[in-house]
């Protein structure tokens, strides 16, 4: 398992569009990985868009991404990039 923490720099937070891209990528490219996203005391399934939305990740908040399974390093790199980017709305 690997684990990394990110600070959200997207000004409108990590909402529908980035979250949808994150979740769809997790499901399509890494079907054999378990993807967990942690914010504060909330721990959710990173392959569920509804879970991601209810996490309500806002600008400047920190989230931790935990990934285990096949190609977990690659998954960390690909999925982590969503948290580090600015997304055009």
């Amino acid at each position: 398992m690997n684990r990394k923490t990110y600070t959200i720099i997207n000004p409108t937070g990590f909402h529908t569009r980035p979250a949808r891209l994150f979740v769809d990528t997790a499901n399509e490219q890494f079907p054999d990985c378990q993807v967990t996203v942690i914010k504060g005391d909330k721990v959710i399934n990173g392959k569920s868009l509804l879970h991601m939305l209810t996490l309500g990740v806002k600008y400047q908040e920190q989230v931790t991404l935990e990934i285990s399974g096949e190609a977990e390093d690659k998954a960390q790199e690909v999925l982590g990039a969503f948290f580090e980017a600015i997304h055009h709305e």
Binding site: V23, D24, L49
Partner: peptide
Amino acid sequence: SILRDPEF
């Protein structure tokens, strides 16, 4: 994406 959402 929600129609495929595992938690939903």
